[in-house]
Amino acid sequence: MDSADLDARRRVVNRLRRARGQLDAVIAAVETEASCRDIVTQLAAVTHALNRAGFVIVAAALQECVGRDDDAEGPTVDELEKVFLSLA
């Protein structure tokens, strides 16, 4: 596993941990009967964190695929992630 793969894995794990923390906040907000606005804001944050993790996973897989098909250096994971984010 090369350093780009390790970096992508680290970024995915960090985003998933962030999403887990945000989901814990949603649960706590529901349990304590927080305002609907606060709950929805936290849900949006969870969704965003999960989407970003998914984009990194797809971008890393696409980079690997592109790299196999072409001897020239392909786009970086960051560049591919930005493309995906522009579509979201």
Rank of each mutant, 00 (worst) to 15 (best):
R9S: 05
E33Y: 12
D71T: 01
A49P: 02
D71L: 07
N51V: 11
F84Y: 14
E79H: 10
D7T: 14
H48W: 07
G67D: 08
D38L: 03
A19S: 14
A72G: 09
V46L: 08
I39Q: 01
L50W: 04
V12M: 11
M1Q: 10
A45K: 09
D5H: 05
R37M: 10
A59H: 01
N51L: 08
E81N: 00
T47V: 11
I57W: 04
R17K: 12
I57D: 00
D71Y: 09
L16P: 03
V40W: 03
I57T: 11
P75T: 01
R18S: 04
A60E: 12
D38Q: 07
I39E: 00
R11F: 05
A53E: 08
D5K: 06
L62K: 04
A44R: 08
T32Y: 09
A8H: 02
R10N: 13
G54Y: 08
R18E: 03
T32G: 13
S35M: 09
F55P: 02
S86P: 04
A4L: 06
S35K: 09
R52V: 02
S35L: 09
A61T: 15
A29K: 01
V66R: 06
G21K: 13
A8G: 05
V66A: 09
R10Q: 15
L50Y: 04
E33H: 14
D2V: 07
C65W: 09
L80E: 07
R18V: 00
L85K: 12
C36R: 11
G67P: 03
V58K: 00
P75M: 01
E31R: 13
R68W: 06
A28H: 08
S35V: 07
V30D: 09
P75E: 01
V30P: 10
E79R: 13
E64L: 07
R37G: 08
E73Y: 11
V56L: 15
I39N: 00
A61Q: 15
Q22K: 12
L85M: 14
F84G: 12
I27T: 15
F55R: 05
L85H: 12
A19F: 05
A34E: 08
D24Q: 15
D24P: 09
Q63G: 00
E31K: 13
K82L: 14
A34N: 08
E81C: 01
V46W: 00
V58G: 00
D71F: 06
A8N: 03
V30T: 06
R52H: 13
V77H: 02
L16V: 02
L16E: 00
V12Q: 05
V83I: 10
F84M: 07
N14I: 03
A4D: 10
S86Q: 10
L16C: 11
R15K: 15
A53L: 05
D24M: 07
D2F: 06
R11V: 03
A25M: 12
R68H: 09
L50N: 03
